[in-house]
Amino acid sequence: MSSSLEEELTTLLDGGAIPLPDKYDVAPESPQPLKLRHNVCYIVMGILLNDQGAAEALSVADALSLPAESYGNDPNIEMAWAMKAYQHAEVYFNLISSVDPRLLKLTRMDDGIYTAFRKDFPDLRIDVIDPEDLKSPAAKEKWRPFCMQFENQVEDFNYGTLLRLESSKEYTEENTIFSTRIQFFAIEIARNREGCNDVIYNHRLNHAAE
């Protein structure tokens, strides 16, 4: 594992903050340094250390710079993606908590992604994702051509990303599944446009008004 990644994880686990990366076209009015919630830390460390020693977990984390498809279906390698995905997940959840999700633009081609997604998956339920709709052999065969059409259009389209199963809830171990980056974009763009993420934003507004 690179020293910088190890230092960032140590800082976050100690309750510190690291700089917020510029990954989205829309950001909160007053962006703050990213401070990882404890529950996301627990997800990361629990995934990494479950069923393997710490030394093995750290060595596996070195592979995070490679595309997800390089590893096939190896569950141990898939688990290690949490190390790279934790920051993306926390930034995104902060965004939908701070900005009206219907106004968010996640990529420069949101319209095309959304149109293609609903053309290929018109009836897919996105407020509560069934893991089988992403992970079953039949689902993977259906997702593959959808994902590959964005290979040269969306940066890191096949990188491992954390996706919430239920859109009304935050990231927890029980509510999180791995997906590719383009699957994340497709589902979350649809959730934003179809109002599924409104509950997260409204909860933040109501809490602030109390």
Rank of each mutant, 00 (worst) to 15 (best):
S2G: 02
S2K: 01
E6A: 09
E6L: 10
L9H: 10
L9W: 00
T10A: 12
T11M: 05
L12V: 07
D14C: 09
G15P: 00
I18K: 11
L20H: 01
D22V: 02
K23V: 00
K23G: 00
Y24M: 04
D25L: 10
P28W: 03
P33Y: 01
H38V: 14
H38S: 13
N39R: 10
C41T: 11
C41G: 15
I43M: 07
I47A: 14
L48C: 14
L49Q: 13
L49T: 08
N50M: 12
D51P: 05
Q52R: 15
Q52D: 02
Q52W: 00
A54C: 04
A54Y: 13
A54G: 06
A54F: 04
A55S: 13
V60M: 07
D62N: 08
D62H: 08
S65F: 02
S65E: 07
S65R: 05
S65L: 05
A68C: 15
A68T: 09
S70I: 01
S70G: 03
N73A: 13
N73T: 15
P75I: 04
P75M: 07
P75S: 11
N76Q: 11
N76A: 10
N76S: 12
I77A: 12
M79L: 09
A82D: 02
M83Y: 11
K84Y: 11
A85W: 03
Q87H: 04
E90C: 03
N94M: 03
L95Y: 00
S98W: 03
D100F: 11
K105P: 01
M109T: 09
D110I: 01
D111L: 07
G112P: 01
I113E: 03
I113Y: 05
T115V: 09
A116P: 00
A116Q: 12
F117V: 06
F117T: 08
R118F: 08
R118S: 03
R118G: 05
D120L: 10
F121V: 14
F121Y: 12
R125T: 06
R125M: 12
R125K: 12
I126T: 15
D127A: 15
D127E: 13
V128E: 10
I129S: 12
E132G: 07
E132Y: 08
K135T: 04
A138R: 05
A138V: 14
A139L: 03
E141N: 15
E141G: 14
K142F: 00
W143H: 04
R144W: 11
C147E: 11
M148A: 08
Q149L: 08
F150N: 09
F150Q: 06
N152K: 11
N152T: 12
V154L: 09
D156Y: 10
F157D: 03
Y159H: 01
Y159F: 13
Y159E: 06
G160F: 05
L162Y: 12
L162R: 14
L163A: 14
R164F: 14
R164W: 01
R164A: 02
E166D: 15
E166W: 08
T172F: 09
E173I: 14
T176A: 09
F178D: 08
S179K: 07
R181M: 03
I182G: 02
I187N: 04
E188P: 06
I189Q: 05
I189Y: 06
I189M: 11
I189S: 02
A190T: 00
A190R: 06
R191I: 06
R191F: 01
N192D: 08
G195I: 06
C196F: 10
C196R: 05
N197A: 15
V199Q: 10
I200L: 13
Y201P: 05
H203V: 04
H203P: 02
L205H: 05
L205I: 12
A209K: 02
